[in-house]
Nucleic acid binder design. Sequence first.
DNA 1: ATATAGTGTGTATTTTCTACACTAAGTAAT
DNA 2: ATTACTTAGTGTAGAAAATACACACTATAT
Lengths: 231, 231
Amino acid sequence: METLLPKFDSVFSIDCVIFGFDEGELKILLIERNEEPFKDWWALPGYIVEQEESIDHAAERILYELTGLRDIYMDQFYTFGDVNRHPQGRVITVAYYAMIRLNGSKELKPISNYASKAVWISVNDLPKLAFDHEKIFSRGFEKIRNKISYQPIAFELLPEKFTLTQLQQLYEVILNKKLDKRNFRKKMLNYGILKELDEKQKGVSYRAAKLYKFDKRKYTRLFQKELTFGK
Amino acid sequence: METLLPKFDSVFSIDCVIFGFDEGELKILLIERNEEPFKDWWALPGYIVEQEESIDHAAERILYELTGLRDIYMDQFYTFGDVNRHPQGRVITVAYYAMIRLNGSKELKPISNYASKAVWISVNDLPKLAFDHEKIFSRGFEKIRNKISYQPIAFELLPEKFTLTQLQQLYEVILNKKLDKRNFRKKMLNYGILKELDEKQKGVSYRAAKLYKFDKRKYTRLFQKELTFGK
DNA sequence: ATATAGTGTGTATTTTCTACACTAAGTAAT
DNA sequence: ATTACTTAGTGTAGAAAATACACACTATAT
């Protein structure tokens, strides 16, 4: 609820935890700041929301400016509003996570002006981050870890055609545990949200695996039904 | 990520979806606005975040000013940042839900100055709301509906001592479906997070039911373990 | 004593979860 | 062509959890 609209001396920003999956590792995109405060520190990509744009729009814009990619799966997950999270004044930040298909090609459109570079870094190997960005990252990671248990967000991270082993590896890195191959396949195939293709993996020096596609139509039907607690 | 700190012409508010359970109905607290815009409309309780307070603190403060209650279960669930959600300018609002033990006594501390009254209204019987508050409510309701499936938030809504039937009724109104009594009890008691008391319901004109308490210690141990996807 | 209204309980069936190990298929080297 | 190598692909049995379902018990009020 809001009544008067006093001018308010605060700033609004977006920060993004951008996930990618490559070489069997879960990575996030970090930028190196080239301005104070936290000059030369690693940080989550983010920027200030403009006066005349929605926060969702700002999140998409920031992602686009950094990666050149549009139409990416993004989801707002938490807003961080402690008084002293920014050393220069009050900054409230809305955090989003995004998922990007890396497809082996890690090249990104080059970068806005506040960062000297952007790189993909494995979530197991993160440096210290600027501001409260470690907290933001943790919360985002936790969020997708929970979410993957009941929603097939994994498919946003994989190439369009993938093998079951790749899918399993992705689950394993997100959940941080080994899964049983047979049980995993049984469960996944039972969902009925995978389309088996007539195609096989190429360029591997061993038996090639079948490729699969994610069937979005069937997924939507399946996951509309509510969860847990039957009659 | 934030660099410069331009003065920014926007306002930050908190809106709260405050749930209570009474007479077998799930209710939320609404206020009647006495100022423009939306004068005389029903709205979610909310207010502007102050310069020097965290958003969590603001949420607690607003709840306190409205109800006189502290130490209430509150959780941030979404931030609404469309450009035109407020007719008089840019207002970004962080939404929280809260859960209150009504205990039959619905009286609240009287109210801040922007509202002429506050009342509990059944979620099945909501009027039109100011701003985008219907959207905010829906999202909050959805949130607790999901959450109750894996976390015992229901206990925040019940009196300290409650019967299994009351607990079941609460699940039923939140999930909006009938549950089987025997299965429900079996499941709940199996969790081992309920303490059976030596006490019975009083003042009923039929066989009195046993009272139970929620065992927070046991709960914490139980729900630390992660969910889904075994080996 | 009787009517009433809600409490409290058990079992059989189905479904889902878990544990577990070998053969099949393709590639690469000789 | 044979062999060695590497990953793909598959089934079953037991345990645990979820579901469906109906009646006797108890306290109160009259």
